[in-house]
Deep mutational scan, measured.
Amino acid sequence: ETIMEVNLLKGPKGLGFSIAGGIGNQHIPGDNSIYITKIIEGGAAQKDGRLQIGDRLLAVNNTNLQDVRHEEAVASLKNTSDMVYLKVAKP
């Protein structure tokens, strides 16, 4: 597993990826991690090219996303300014 830091500039459609996982909404049984499950065509993440489906999202800005509820992860992604710092684990 490789840890990678990505600074992503939000586009008109936001960050351009979808997530799944978290406490109460496990993407993988027994694993509370938050995973990237979709990269949106023409979105910021696709244009940047570094994020991939299956990457594990560890942090957004200063918010640690390990062992959080799905709703908390979504809220932390929404409550960001235009430049967003992401910390991901690549499988």
Rank of each mutant, 00 (worst) to 15 (best):
N62I: 03
D82E: 03
A44V: 08
E5T: 10
G54Y: 04
G22Q: 02
D67Q: 14
G54P: 00
I3T: 08
G54W: 04
T80H: 14
S81M: 11
G54R: 05
D31A: 04
V6Q: 02
T37A: 13
I40D: 12
Q46V: 13
G21I: 02
N79W: 09
N64L: 13
S18C: 07
Q52I: 10
A20C: 10
P29D: 15
H27Y: 11
D31L: 03
G21V: 02
N25L: 11
G21D: 02
M83V: 13
A45Y: 01
S76N: 04
L58P: 00
F17V: 09
K38A: 15
N62M: 08
T2F: 15
Q46S: 13
K78R: 10
D55S: 10
Y35R: 04
V68A: 09
D55M: 10
G43K: 04
S81K: 12
N79E: 11
H70R: 06
I40M: 11
K78L: 11
K47Y: 15
G24L: 10
A75V: 13
L8E: 01
G42N: 08
T2R: 05
D55I: 03
F17T: 01
N25R: 11
L15W: 06
E72T: 12
V84M: 06
A45N: 01
L65Q: 03
I34L: 09
A73R: 00
F17S: 00
N7W: 04
H70G: 12
G11V: 05
K90G: 10
S18Q: 13
E71D: 15
K78G: 13
A44N: 12
G14Y: 02
V88F: 04
G22T: 02
E5M: 15
K38W: 11
I19H: 03
E1C: 05
N79L: 14
L58F: 12
D67S: 15
H70V: 06
K10T: 07
S33R: 08
I34K: 02
R50H: 15
M83I: 10
L9C: 08
R56Q: 15
L9W: 04
G43A: 10
K13W: 09
G22H: 03
L15E: 01
T2H: 07
G16Y: 00
P12K: 09
E72S: 09
Q26V: 06
V68E: 03
V74F: 15
K87T: 04
E72R: 09
I39N: 01
Y35S: 02
L86S: 01
V84S: 06
G43S: 14
R69V: 12
N32D: 08
N25D: 10
G54H: 06
R56Y: 02
N62D: 15
P91Y: 05
A89Q: 03
L57I: 08
L15Y: 02
G16N: 01
L8M: 06
N25K: 13
G30S: 13
S81Q: 15
I19E: 00
A45L: 04
T80R: 05
A45S: 07
G14C: 08
A73F: 03
Q26Y: 05
N64E: 12
A45F: 01
L86M: 14
V84L: 13
V88T: 11
A73W: 02
Q46A: 13
L77Y: 02
A75W: 06
L15P: 07
D48N: 05
I19S: 03
I40H: 12
R56A: 10
I23C: 12
N61V: 02
I53Y: 09
K13H: 08
G14T: 04
L86V: 06
G22S: 03
G21P: 03
A45I: 10
I34N: 01
T80I: 14
Q66T: 10
L15R: 01
G14E: 04
G30N: 09
A44D: 05
K13D: 07
V88H: 02
I3M: 11
A73L: 03
G42P: 04
L51K: 00
M83F: 07
G22N: 02
A73E: 00
K10S: 05
M4V: 06
G21T: 03
F17C: 03
I40W: 07
D48H: 13
V88I: 14
M83D: 14
A44P: 13
Y35Q: 03
G30Y: 05
V60C: 08
H70F: 06
A59M: 09
S81I: 13
L15H: 06
V60P: 00
A59K: 15
K78N: 15
